[in-house]
């Protein structure tokens, strides 16, 4: 099985480690990964700001980049929601409509792909720590993926996953909103972080680096000592062969092949 990585522009540019983690996880699951290098950005920033034509220009490139791919998998709920649910609208009546629909159909968010397509819910991972999870709005409401990343995380041995109060509330990122309405966006982040603090988690995990960049940025200003990372980064660490210790091996639950 071969998957094309839709790395997303933010991961490509600012958080390469998330892309690396995604590749490693997929490979550890026996999936071949390629990276069509023509990909740039899905176009969402322009689309959400009302610039549909400019968004389409970016989107055309993405469609072309993945034209020959069988499966397209990305580590972002938001960018995948854009492709899956908004491309059909963006290309309605456009000469590339059919190709846009094809891409929409074969594009998956990473956890969605692992759980729903590969049928894997337990990666045999081990990680000691207390974490809470930020459910990004575009992943849950836009894409409709609510449980997949949590399912994978709940099956990490040693990891205590604490429910985040009011998890469904937006963190205040919202793309250009974070800049145009900066103080409002910050007030929303503060509410979110107050709830994160209540969980006393050491790790704040999420499936969208844009939200996490915003939250981490605010945490650093507030001096909050919480590690922020993509859930895939944690899973990658937690499934490293050198982390598979004697205890779990003895349980017979997991082994590196």
């Amino acid at each position: 099985m071969r998957v094309s990585l839709f790395v997303t522009c933010i991961v490509d540019t600012l958080y390469p480690q998330v892309g690396v983690s995604a590749v490693r996880l997929l490979r550890r699951l026996g999936v071949d990964v390629d990276f069509p290098s023509e990909q740039t950005c899905c176009g969402q920033p322009a689309y959400n700001s009302g610039y549909a034509a400019d968004a389409r220009r970016a989107a055309q490139r993405l469609i072309q980049a993945f034209r020959d791919s069988q499966w397209v998998v990305g580590p972002s709920g938001s960018c995948v929601a854009m492709v899956r649910h908004l491309y059909p609208k963006l290309f309605q009546g456009h000469p590339m409509e059919r190709e846009a629909l094809e891409l929409a159909e074969k594009t998956y968010e990473l956890s969605q792909f692992i759980v729903d397509v590969l049928g894997v819910t337990d990666m045999g991972a081990t990680f000691d720590g207390v974490a809470t999870y930020h459910t990004s709005c575009h992943m849950t409401r836009g894409l409709g993926v609510k449980e997949a990343p949590l399912t994978l995380l709940r099956n990490v041995r040693g990891l205590r996953l604490v429910d985040l109060p009011f998890a469904e509330d937006c963190c205040g990122f919202g793309g250009t909103f974070a800049v145009k309405m900066a103080s409002l966006s910050t007030a929303m982040a503060d509410d979110k972080l107050d709830n994160v603090a209540k969980t006393q988690a050491q790790y704040l995990l999420g499936g969208d680096m844009a939200c996490l960049m915003h939250l981490k940025g605010r945490m650093e200003k507030r001096g909050m000592p919480v590690n922020v990372m993509h859930w895939a980064e944690l899973l990658e660490l937690a499934t490293r062969p050198d982390r598979v210790d004697a205890r779990t091996l003895a349980d017979g639950e997991v082994s590196a092949s």
């Binding site: 490509d12 894997v120 990666m123 590196a256």
Partner: peptide
């Protein structure tokens, strides 16, 4: 960036396969 890492090292790396239940 990611694409630099991909070219310089990641593309060649191999990962041990996990024995997953599902």
């Amino acid at each position: 960036g990611f694409r630099d890492l991909w070219q310089s090292e990641l593309t060649k790396q191999r990962e041990p396969r996990l024995a997953v239940k599902a």
